[in-house]
């Protein structure tokens, strides 16, 4: 069993099939927007269960999840095997760097898995001075400013949002985080003084960040070792 997972052949087959399914999905989604319109609005598994009536049309996603699970297990076992069996003092950076990078990928896939299983996304439309209670948070929009910067073709917004009596300034690309929930202004209209506030709770993000940091450490080591490796002569 261990041999199966550490084999390069397994990895090549699994990623090959995975790419094939991604390819099918890339053609299938744009042609079936009516089915897939809500897929990005909630955790994947919840969306799949809600759309169980079109199971046959979503089968490729179930197969893709199984394939990604295999990639995850194969990468994890392969890396642990290399770290335990092949790392010595002399080969420390050379062997360990790609394995650290692999562990980073394992954590990123884990983050995707957690995001697919849990969390929520909730949009609420609020006008200036309006109060709202959503998912246990008392929110109030105190005011909103609109302005333009030179060179930009859209208006910027700045929303002063009170969450449980705590003041937060929300701008484009600058959300507020409160009790592990992200508060985003998804869009705003100056004339109506209206803002669409998105509440996003995604526990997978933490694993994505940890995975990204681990990946960058591994990538730096790999850059270093490969950059210093000499090419054989013979041109």
């Amino acid at each position: 069993m261990l041999k199966f997972f550490v084999s390069i052949k397994t990895y090549l087959w699994v990623t090959g099939i995975g790419m094939g399914i991604f390819l099918i999905g890339s053609f299938y989604i744009p042609k079936n927007l009516a089915i897939f319109s809500g897929i990005n609005d909630m955790p994947l598994i919840k969306w799949l269960l809600l759309n169980n009536n079109v199971f046959d049309k979503l089968l490729w996603i179930y197969v893709l999840i199984a394939i990604m699970l295999l990639v995850w297990v194969s990468t994890l076992i392969c890396s642990l095997d290399a770290i335990i069996k092949r790392t010595t003092r002399k080969t420390f950076v050379r062997i360990l760097s790609p394995q650290i990078l692999h562990i980073g990928i394992v954590l990123v896939i884990l983050g995707h898995g957690i995001s697919a299983l849990s969390g929520y996304k909730h949009d609420v439309s609020m006008t200036a001075m309006e109060s709202y209670e959503v998912r246990g948070f008392n929110m109030k929009v105190n005011n909103m400013d609109f302005f333009k910067k030179p060179g930009e073709n859209s208006t910027r917004w700045r929303v002063n949002l009170e969450i449980d009596n705590n003041m937060h300034i929300l701008e484009v690309g600058k959300p507020a985080f409160y009790n592990n929930v992200g508060f985003f202004v998804k869009s705003a209209r100056e004339k109506k003084q209206l803002a669409i506030i998105g509440l996003i709770y995604d526990p997978g993000v933490l694993w994505e960040i940890i995975g990204a940091v681990v990946f960058v450490v591994g990538a730096a080591g790999l850059f270093y070792t490969k950059f210093n490796e000499r090419l054989p002569s013979g041109t």
Partner: peptide, 20 residues
């Protein structure tokens, strides 16, 4: 993308091809 729109990955043809 996460800091701007609250998602780090989307099910669109573009994202699927980047993954490919």
């Amino acid at each position: 993308f996460f800091l701007t729109y609250g998602s780090y990955w989307l099910w669109t043809a573009k994202e699927l091809w980047i993954t490919i």
